[in-house]
Structure formats: C-alpha cells, structure tokens
C-alpha cells in the first residue's frame, strides 16, 4: 500500500519537477563543463583524429605561460579590465540621466524610447562591425574611437588639443582630463551599450510613488535636493542590477574572450585557451563581488 505523502513533500516534489529540466541541463552542461575547463587548463591536451583526446597533467604551467610567456594576453587583459572599469560608472550614470529625461512626458516620447532600445536588438556581430565601419565613414561626431574623433575634429577646423591645453592650464589634474576626453570620445559606445539599463531605470523611476515627490514639493525641496534625497535612494537597488548587467555584457564582448577563442579554435592550444578564459572569468567575478559589496553597503532599501 502506498504511504500517503504530506502536502509539503508533495509540493516540494512538484517544485523540483518544475525545475528539473534546468537542473539536468545545469549539471550536465554547466557544472560538468566548468569542471572540465579547470581540468583542461591544468593539462596539456591533444585531440586525436578519430575524436576523443588525451590529457597530460602539467600543473599550473598554462597559467604561468599566459602571464609570462604569451605576448598579448597580459596587455589585452589589462585593457579589457580598464575599459570595463571606465565604462561601468559612465554607462550607469548616463542611463540614469537618460531614463530621467525619457520618463517625463513630451511629444515623441515613444519614438525616442524605441530608438534608444534599438541597439539592444541590433547587437549581431556582423551588424555591429558594419556599423562601426559606417560610423568611421560618416565621422560627424559619432565615430567610435578617440583617434577618429581627433581626426574628424582636425578636419573640421576645431583643435581639440587647444581646449585640452586650456583646461590643463586651469589646473585640472591630467587624470580627470583624460577620463573626460576618453568618455566623450566613447560616447557612441556608451549610448549603444545602455539600452537595457535605460529601460530598467525607467521602470524603477515609475515604481516610485508620486506621493513622495508631492511631500518633497510641499516641504520646499528644490529639484536638485529632490533628486538626491528621493529619486537616487529609490533607484539605488536597481543600480546593482544594472552594474551586474553592464559588467557581464562588456566582458562577453571584450577582447580577452576573442583572444581565448582564437587560441583555442585557431591555434589549437586548448590548455592555454582554457586557462585564459578561466583567468578572465575569475577576475570578472572578483570585480562583480567587490563592486556589489561596495554598492550594497551604501544602498537604501525601501522595504
């Protein structure tokens, strides 16, 4: 005779049934692959012609080689990480700013939102490459790299160097200047990378109750104060979501990933390629954890 199960067990079994497909997939593809990746990176791997492969354990040799022997890896890794660190705050604040602009009612708002979201849908590799080429041809202030901006500026008769020197003589530190000019020359990259973030912030802004703004207005707060005392704390929790999204997105499109892909599938150096992708993944995860900790400590949770 079948023993009757309690409702709790029954429900937990149903729940497990619901997630079963994913659980199998996760164990089969992700967990196993991660383990295999670590294994590959620790060994010298040779693929046999009939399929199948052999592994010779070599310890941390691949990791050491990636850092000391490989010509490009260190440099590409640092530029990728630096790009990420520069882009993340820029994208976050730009998308918050744009979300606040787009959240107000004005004529053509739907159209503007539709256009802002377009880059998310046109993110195919081929489209992006062609767009970059076209941008370089059109020049008109939308080119994607700083050298192109400088070229376009010199051809239009504006000397950027002059302005840079002017601000330099005002006593602004060079680091700040470089950051600002870097940010401006990346503007198209930043705009194209912030579609999803803008939408997330718009949704967050719409979830703030209008009563709060009413109170702020009655108490005589200026627009500036309202932003820092009401809007910013209320969207704070969503900043983490956006930062995570931006970091992962910029990592997926970064050059380290391309390098690892090349090393594995073009140069057939499987162990080294696995080591490279693991190193970059670990660094990204570290950055994510640190940034999230940093923001979380300062985050105000409404409920």
């Amino acid at each position: 005779m079948k023993k009757k199960m309690s409702l709790t067990t029954k429900r937990s079994i149903t729940g497990l049934l619901f997630i079963l497909p994913w659980l199998i997939g996760f164990l089969w593809f992700y967990a196993r692959s991660l383990f295999m990746s670590v294994q590959y990176s620790l060994s010298y791997m040779e693929v046999k012609p009939g399929g199948g492969y052999t592994l010779d354990f070599v310890g941390f040799e691949n990791y050491l080689y990636a850092f000391s022997g490989h010509g490009q890896f260190k440099q590409i890794l640092t530029t990728s990480v630096m790009d990420m660190l520069i882009d993340v705050p820029l994208i976050t604040f730009f998308s918050l700013f744009m979300a606040m602009l787009l959240n107000k009612k004005f004529r053509g708002r739907t159209l503007a939102r539709a256009i802002f979201f377009l880059p998310v849908l046109l993110n195919s590799e081929a489209i992006v490459d062609t767009m970059d080429a076209t941008r370089a041809l059109l020049a008109g202030g939308i080119s994607s790299s700083s050298t192109e901006v400088l070229e376009a500026a010199s051809s239009s008769g504006v000397s950027i160097d002059y302005y840079i020197q002017m601000f330099d003589s005002l006593g602004l530190p060079m680091g700040v200047l470089e950051y600002v000019t870097g940010a401006i020359s990346r503007i198209s990259e930043i705009i194209n990378a912030s579609g999803v973030q803008i939408i997330i912030f718009i949704a967050a802004l719409q979830s703030i109750s209008p009563a709060m703004y009413e109170v702020a207005k009655i108490e005589g707060a200026t627009a500036y104060e309202t932003f820092w005392k009401v809007t910013f704390p209320m969207v704070m929790p969503h900043i983490i979501t956006n930062v995570v999204y931006t970091v992962v997105d910029s990592f997926t499109n970064s050059e380290v990933v391309d390098l690892a892909y090349r090393v594995i599938f073009k140069e057939y150096n499987y162990g080294l390629g696995s080591a490279m992708s693991l190193i970059s993944t670990i660094i990204t995860c570290l950055i994510l954890v640190l940034v999230c900790r940093f923001i979380q400590k300062r985050t105000f949770y409404y409920n």
Binding site: F26, S33, L34, M36, S37, V244, V248, I264, L278, C285
Partner: peptide, 13 residues
C-alpha cells in the same frame, strides 16, 4: 549561469 558567460565553457561544450 547569468554571470559566467558561455565563453568560459566553450571548449568543454
């Protein structure tokens, strides 16, 4: 799964 991109595990896959 969201955070670790597929690129990390492309070879095992």
């Amino acid at each position: 799964m969201i955070v670790i991109p597929t690129h990390t595990i492309m070879l095992p896959l």
